[in-house]
Nucleic acid binder design. Sequence first.
DNA 1: CGGCCGCATTGACAAACGTCAATTTATAAA
DNA 2: TTTATAAATTGACGTTTGTCAATGCGGCCG
Lengths: 244, 244
Amino acid sequence: MTPTTPTRETTLGCDACVMRHKSDWQVLSDDEIQMLSRGQSKHCYETGQTVYAMGERSRGVYCICSGAVAIRQFDPEGNSVLLQLAYSGDTLGYESVLTGETHRCSAEALGPATVCLIGTHTVKTLIARNPDLGLQFLRRTAAKLQDAQEKLVQHATLSNRAKLAHVLLILMDRCGRRGTDGAGSIYLPVSRRDLASMIGTRHETLSRIIGRMENDGLAYFSGRSVDIPRIEALLGEIRPQLVG
Amino acid sequence: MTPTTPTRETTLGCDACVMRHKSDWQVLSDDEIQMLSRGQSKHCYETGQTVYAMGERSRGVYCICSGAVAIRQFDPEGNSVLLQLAYSGDTLGYESVLTGETHRCSAEALGPATVCLIGTHTVKTLIARNPDLGLQFLRRTAAKLQDAQEKLVQHATLSNRAKLAHVLLILMDRCGRRGTDGAGSIYLPVSRRDLASMIGTRHETLSRIIGRMENDGLAYFSGRSVDIPRIEALLGEIRPQLVG
DNA sequence: CGGCCGCATTGACAAACGTCAATTTATAAA
DNA sequence: TTTATAAATTGACGTTTGTCAATGCGGCCG
């Protein structure tokens, strides 16, 4: 959302990147990595800065070196829906490269983040040269599709409370710390409004659900910190009718 | 859902298929089409028969020659959610081929349908031989992902009534007939229960929404037939707050 | 330090939704 | 055609949610 331009960095090249062997680009050979290095530029973003905006023309694909990025979409009224959280190693924005259309979502840094932009021409050249890269993108996209479809099923069948429990469990996996026994704690990467949009409700309703969860001893919220006494208890929330 | 086995047909080969130049396989050369023909088998399904079931091991990808197929997912309680309607020319089930996992969704014929099964080995060979096929799948998957994400945004921001209006407009495009003026009519390919699952609500609620829509003169339902006096009126339903 | 602004919480009320149950209408089978 | 079975509708009722509005909390900048 912040319009400030990100810092451009002179970079060491992708062969030295920490994500070299953990991202989709791992299928590239050494000289293809050199091509990638030449066709790429590294940028540093502060909290809230926009990596790319919805409606913008695609400039290439984006590879997250460090930090977390929120993928969101806005509806005509200006409401935003948080669709995905992306972390280091993730590659973003190749849908628009393939279709040639403008970005359907916007990407925004959730904290200090470094992201590399690989120009459209370089991406297309690399895909043509090494088909494995395209296959890698295909696998990744298929996984995202399954993810989105699972969310659709949950939106259709689960209560908001169960959906919140599910999101907490996912965030627990992503950025939570496990305690001694079945306990855990999370530092949320997102605001309450975004959390509400993730489960498909208003932020006021989310507040009430949180209140009820605290009453029931399931999870305790304080700012962006969440404490979960028993992680399995959250799991039980997702399928209430199966417990009986 | 019907466990009856589909009819197997001796086929003429994919080079003669009506979908030859309208499906993802259009990127294949003549001799690659011959490979496709040899690695494929054609099956005829009756209404309600299962093409592949959730949890089943993948046997390959499925190409719809004629008819319509419903892609659905079941949650642990047995509720089903209709995720996608597929028509002739569409290719299904390649996610499972890529990941090697079992099918996450089930596919079921909505009416008499003919579907070709292309064996896993043939698919992998063709993708390795002609990277354009993989790219074609990638484009298709990316489009489906955008579709799913748009639905997620709608589930989070629109009322059930607006969502129904939206589904009707999509079905209007797919299988509707336009009248003289702004009117139109649709023969629904799905039951009320499925329609309800598409907009994420119970079938009883859908019944009531339909009742209110008929009261307001927006659409008239009779069995699986829907009459829409003014198509633009449905469009206005989707963004009620923008009309003011 | 204080004011400002956005985020979060809480309350009150009306509207929408889910559930259970009964009834009517289709559809398929005998 | 009759019967059985599933789908669809309708009613009643309690719960949840959205909306509007007011208040509390926290960071940021002057």
